[in-house]
Computed example of a mutant assay.
Amino acid sequence: MKVVQVLPDLDGGGVERGTLEVARGLVAAGHESLVISAGGKLVPQLEREGSRHLTWDLGRKSLFTLRHIWSLRRWMRDYQPDIIHLRSRLPAWIVWLAWKGLPAGQRPHLVTTVHGLYSVSGYSAIMCRGERVIAVSQTVMDYIQNNYPETDSTKLRLINRGIDPEEFPYGFQPSAQWREAWYQQYPQLVSKKVLTLPGRITRLKGHQDLITLVAALKQAGIPVHALIVGGEDPRRQAYADELRARIREEGLDDWITFTGARGDIREIYAVSDVVLSLSNKPESFGRTVVECLSLGVPVAGFGHGGVAETLAELYPEGLVAKGDLNELQQRLQSWFRAGAPEVSGNAVYTLERMISDTLAVYDELTHRSDKQA
């Protein structure tokens, strides 16, 4: 098969990571893999792993982006891909308009993946127009069926995101050298119960709730230290400043640490007593939750969206009603005093299963005798 995946860029993130994982799986299975994007820091890795990259900026929000429709149509006619897999809304519109302009017999098969819980609109509806529509979780499947009921249910495929168990092996422990460097950098963590909240510094991630939680645990006499692990967006500097001001006002400077973006997140998870998921909006898939539970690290999180789905499957002991900080605080006190329930790992949300199921969708389409779906 010739399979083309299309997205805005390859600068990093969950969608981009999944694109590279599927590309790697295609190459390993002997297929031809090509990715169209505006480029980015992941392109060299993509090409090292056997795929080709075509630089085409289809994600720029400008009327000028429409000019690519005719070039794309010519390119599809010449390259004759078997599958075009669309992973983002604006590029999906551009490709779909180009695709519709081809005679039916010359069109490649069209696959879309709904990665997020997008705002419900005609603009977002493009992600349900594939001949096959992949939902990355049951949460997303429900979102599609509830908000776009005109989508033909026979075209829907549930393919949960997955992680590589070799990258997040159960029982993993960092090296002695890493630990030494870590505790030299953060000596305030020694002999403390470590709570970690990963994710970019945005209002969606629940940092204010974390501060409230740490203040309550301090009041209860729990020797806890919280890590906020994630990069700060210069455009949201006011929010980061707001968090630091509140931490100072509440006397929590010695109880909460900002680490910034880190490349050793696996090691940080492994030395955490509990990892938190406090997003105030539902997420499409609880990837962080799955990574931690794969390592055997306890997770506590608000029970909505994909986080509720993954916790219910792998670690229901960590489910807390959305926004219920009192319940969460009581849960953590119990865990810190008596020990958290053991984590059994992850045999459900695996990369191997995700890639196998995705390639099966491609195979299903290309082995049909007609071009209709």
Rank of each mutant, 00 (worst) to 15 (best):
K2C: 05
V15L: 08
R17W: 05
L20N: 08
R24I: 11
V27A: 05
A28P: 12
S37P: 14
G40S: 12
G40M: 11
V43L: 08
P44F: 09
G59W: 02
R67T: 15
H68Y: 14
S71W: 05
Y79K: 01
P81C: 04
P81K: 01
P81H: 02
H85S: 06
L86P: 07
S88K: 02
L90M: 04
I94Q: 02
L102Y: 14
P103I: 14
A104D: 10
H109Y: 13
V114L: 04
V114Y: 01
M127C: 05
G130I: 12
E131T: 05
A135P: 13
Q138L: 07
M141D: 10
Q145V: 15
D152E: 13
R157W: 10
G162V: 12
I163S: 09
S175G: 15
Q184P: 01
Q184S: 11
Q185K: 13
L189G: 09
L195S: 03
T202E: 11
K205Y: 10
Q219F: 07
A226R: 01
I228L: 15
V229G: 03
G231D: 14
A238S: 13
A240K: 03
A240M: 05
D241F: 02
E250P: 06
E250M: 11
T259C: 01
D264Q: 06
A270W: 07
A270S: 15
V271N: 02
V271W: 08
S272V: 01
V275L: 00
P282E: 03
P282M: 04
F285Y: 10
V290S: 11
H304W: 15
G306P: 11
L311W: 03
L311M: 09
Y315Q: 00
V320F: 00
G323I: 13
Q329V: 13
Q329N: 12
Q330L: 13
G339S: 09
E342Y: 02
G345M: 06
N346K: 06
E352I: 07
L359S: 14
L359Y: 10
D363H: 12
L365R: 05
T366A: 03
R368S: 15
K371Q: 12
Q372L: 13
